[in-house]
């Protein structure tokens, strides 16, 4: 693990809610963040199937999108979610980790635009996709 990634991971671990969900940062560079969340019983939304709750996927998406904004070359000093839309394509396979890749593809003086895709371990079809806009706090 590079020093920069190690540092970024410490940052993610300092977010209590991200830590509570067991999120781990895999990649963070130039406006792209990859964060994974291991399967855990406490994240289950439907006890009959063992499928992870959409809300936990939302939290993962939101964290990855925020991290992507922070890693953008324009170096925003801070960010907050303005709007986040998530489409749930299919149920995540019980027992598998979910990994989200988020890309911040455009930043203006005040707004960052982000897209993200969440996958589990076994299929080409994503579990969920997200589109979000984020604030850009005092750049440079």
């Amino acid at each position: 693990m590079t020093d920069k990634l190690k540092q970024a991971n410490q940052f993610i671990r300092a977010l209590p809610h991200a830590r509570a969900l067991g999120m781990q940062l895999q990649t963070l560079e130039l406006g792209t963040a990859i964060i994974s969340m291991p399967y855990a019983d406490r994240l289950v939304g439907d006890p009959k199937t063992g499928v992870i709750h959409g809300g936990a996927v939302s939290a993962l998406m939101d964290t990855a999108c925020g991290a992507a904004v922070m890693s953008h070359p324009s170096h925003p000093a801070g960010t907050a979610t303005i709007d986040l839309r998530i489409e749930y394509l299919r149920a995540a396979t019980p027992g598998q980790a979910i990994t989200t890749e988020a890309t911040c593809y455009h930043v203006t003086r005040s707004v960052a635009f982000v897209r993200a895709t969440a996958r589990d371990e076994d299929s080409e079809t994503p579990v969920a996709m997200a589109t979000g806009t984020f604030t850009v706090e005092g750049g440079k």
């Binding site: 977010l15 209590p16 809610h17 991200a18 509570a20 969900l21 809300g55 939290a59 939101d62 907050a80």
Partner: peptide, 20 residues
């Protein structure tokens, strides 16, 4: 505390809000 996203402000995590 587990619901915090920004420990400096502090503020609720957007994901916790979305889930709620």
């Amino acid at each position: 505390d587990d619901l915090i996203g920004n420990p400096i402000l502090p503020a609720l995590h957007g994901g916790a809000t979305a889930a709620f």
